[in-house]
Design a protein around this nucleic acid. Structure first.
Lengths: 204, 204
DNA sequence: TGCTCATTGTGCATATTTGCCCATTGGGCA
DNA sequence: TGCCCAATGGGCAAATATGCACAATGAGCA
């Protein structure tokens, strides 16, 4: 699907390495506990290169949560799609694929960090927005000719607009009795997600 | 000691990755069982970049055997040297440090490969020569003012000129009853090395 | 207040890597 | 023999990464 030249691969690897390093440092030391120099040292790049990819550490930290490592599964899934599925069904399955345990866990960590330091919030929103764009492209492509673009845009917008509230809601529920952070529990989020799609299907 | 900028580090990493990949392929498939394209694919670089570092796969394979990963130990050892050691003693200890098990094993694999394909031999010689240059620099620096350069040059030349015969000799001895290649046995080589230095000390 | 200093942002030169190109080489085969 | 073709070597431009310099920012402190 993607051209993915060697250059593309390495560019993506650089961006991911920087984002991962920033995210790890944010978890370990808090948003104010490190500087860009620490990030590039951990990732093995120069400060100048960091500036070529991200405008600040907040952006890098946020991007770490949307790094997508399941492109192959999504591709296979797209190929196996039924012709008669509605955009709503497609979108539902896509979110199940995209928002896997690791993603959810990272997003929650991001939200926790942003509670302590609201500077982070706009960058989280941007990161989520990039997820939305990706989903929009997939849905648009899959339902082309069967549904107008306006329909899918509104639908995808509604769903991704609800991600943050969904996360927030499931956090409030989970956080008190939350077990180990390294084994994220997604069941409650899934429940909220199902509820959300029920509303979307049957109307609020 | 070395400036070792980030650029230097990455340049060395590239050269090493390419050499390691070439060496691994040579072991797995033989010198004629792979092409440069295979090397760069395994290492994650382009064919053009390979050409920036090595003129052919034989050169890369040979360089893999002299990649030195014990610079720190050597540095520490240099700092702890006695002022009254002779160049011969220094050189003896340096070879013990340089020619560790992994190096010996790689060099032997190289020799085995070169028996099947003599194309490799000049590149092995070049690789050994680079080891010799390094040793020459260390020895010259350590004995500066106490011994003339001519003396150390002749000495180092004599020793490194004997490395290939030493390897050959110890191979002949070891190969029949050689155990697992992944646990190289260096004791017999060490014995040969000691004999060599005995000759150098007391005269042939 | 004004000063100091760590951090950051950015322009520019240089180094490194890649992609694309084509010429050359050398072995296999009709 | 002559042709074909995979592999190679290398020129060149573009993309990416680095090193360096300097300005801007902003927090801490006398």
């Amino acid at each position: 699907m993607n051209k993915q030249s060697l250059r593309d691969i390495k560019r993506e690897a650089t961006a991911n390495a920087l984002a991962d390093a920033a995210f790890a440092l944010a978890l370990a030391k808090g948003l104010d506990g490190f500087v860009v120099e620490d990030v590039v040292q951990r990732a093995g790049y120069s400060r100048r290169t960091f500036a070529n990819y991200y405008s600040c550490k907040e952006e890098a930290v946020s991007m770490a949560a949307v790094i997508f490592n399941g492109a192959d599964e999504v591709e296979a899934w797209i190929g196996s799609l039924n012709e008669d599925m509605t955009p709503l069904d497609i979108l539902y399955q896509l979110m199940k694929l995209q928002l896997t345990g690791e993603h959810l866990w990272k997003l929650r960590q991001l939200l926790t960090l942003s509670k302590q330091n609201p500077t982070l919030e706009p960058y989280i929103l941007s990161a989520l927005r990039s997820l939305q764009i990706t989903a929009q492209d997939v849905i648009s492509d899959l339902s082309r000719g069967r549904y107008p673009d306006g329909y899918t845009h509104l639908l995808v917008g509604a769903v991704y607009g609800a991600v943050l509230p969904l996360l927030d809601g499931s956090m409030n529920v989970l956080l008190p009795g939350e077990s180990a952070p390294e084994a994220p529990e997604a069941v409650t989020f899934d429940h909220y997600l199902d509820t959300m799609f029920d509303y979307l299907r049957k109307g609020f």
